[in-house]
């Protein structure tokens, strides 16, 4: 290549390497390769070159042009990459800023607990049944072996809406409704609101229960123990200690109160500071549900043959379980619907 072309090549390379913008590079392209550009001019001048020199001169100029084009392309690419990388740096967000969203709502904690209990029983094949909140005396008491003037009625102070109509004091009347209309085998749970004439930090005039019962041939007290132990370990923890102790309900015989090892003091009855645990009153146990084998008298009321069928029934307080699971101390918090309380629970 002749010396002047060699110089030209170096000049272009030098200028391209110093250019800092796409516009500058574009300018150089016009200056050398444009219609009036230097290289274009040289190519155009080929016709004046002696014919024997023309092929070589032509090839040299074409190589020069290819060289410049390649350099320009490379230069543009690196400028673009530089620009993108600069942009990537500048566009960096502060990922510690809070996400932007509409506030989600919350399902009520009592609903969460009922759902959890229902799911445990559903997985065992129990069906849901429901009944009216306003009951008659027959279903709420009489057919559950609590005749008028029975002292057991004292355990359930009652709201009346008419002489024989009342707000159910427990979900047990649904046992009667179901057994009146269906034959065994039955395994049913009944979530619902119940009412007692009572109002303080641990009692609300309305609260929720989940009732359940199972009736078939050959159901025994050992089955009651097995099913309820399984259920409580699902609801609380797989290694929860469960104890059954005798009690009295007019509609079950034998009857059992079921306790779990205290979830607050871990069943020790005392806290780490050696003060007695307030939640279990130092006993290490928490009463969690009432249960028993369905009394033959109840079967007589619904027309079942107690010699053929047997079954167990149980009832648990939803608020009590929620209070223990979440460490809520005042039952009234569940019904004040203070967002500061409700928003402490997860949204699903």
């Amino acid at each position: 290549m002749n010396e002047s072309l060699e110089r030209l090549k170096e000049e272009v390379a030098g200028r391209l390497s110093r250019s800092v913008s796409e516009a500058e590079v574009e300018q150089l392209r016009v200056e050398y390769l444009g219609r009036k550009g230097t290289v274009t001019g040289l190519l155009r001048g080929l016709k004046d070159v002696a014919p024997e020199e023309r092929p070589q001169r032509g090839e040299e100029l074409n190589r020069l042009r290819a060289f410049i084009e390649e350099r320009i392309a490379g230069c543009l690419e690196s400028l673009k990459a530089e620009k993108r990388s600069k942009a990537l740096t500048e566009e960096r967000v502060d990922i510690t800023l809070p996400g932007s969203r509409r506030e989600r709502g919350r399902v009520h904690p009592l609903t969460m607990v009922v759902d959890e209990i229902v799911d445990v029983f559903s997985a065992m094949g129990f069906e849901i049944a429901r009944g009216p909140d306003i009951e008659d005396d027959y279903h709420n008491f009489e057919a559950l072996n609590m005749p008028k003037d029975h002292p057991a009625r004292d355990m359930q102070d009652t709201f009346f809406v008419a002489a024989e109509r009342l707000l159910r004091t427990h979900t047990s009347p649904v046992q009667i409704h179901v057994m009146e209309s269906r034959k065994p085998p039955l395994q049913i749970i009944v979530p619902g609101a119940v009412y007692r004439h009572d109002d303080d930090a641990t009692h609300s005039p309305m609260f929720h229960q989940v009732e359940g019962f199972m009736v078939d041939r050959g159901i025994a007290f050992t089955d009651l123990k097995g099913v309820l132990t399984h259920v409580l370990r699902q609801i609380f923890s797989a290694d929860a200690r469960v104890r059954f102790r005798p009690s009295f309900f007019p509609f079950t015989e034998p009857s059992a109160e079921v306790d779990i090892g205290c979830v607050i003091c871990d069943g020790k009855g005392a806290l780490r500071d050696s003060h007695a645990c307030r939640v279990c009153k130092g006993t290490g146990w928490l009463e969690i549900l009432g249960s028993g084998m369905i009394d033959p008298e109840v079967f007589r009321f619904v027309g079942y043959d107690a010699e053929k069928f047997s079954g167990f029934a149980f009832g648990m307080g939803v608020e009590r379980i929620a209070m223990l699971k979440y460490g809520v101390e005042d039952i009234r918090l569940f019904f004040q619907n203070d967002l500061r309380f409700l928003r402490q629970f997860p949204s699903f």
Partner: peptide
Amino acid sequence: VGEGLVEAIHLP
């Protein structure tokens, strides 16, 4: 809940 509403339970 997805629409942002909180569930309330009341005495009747």
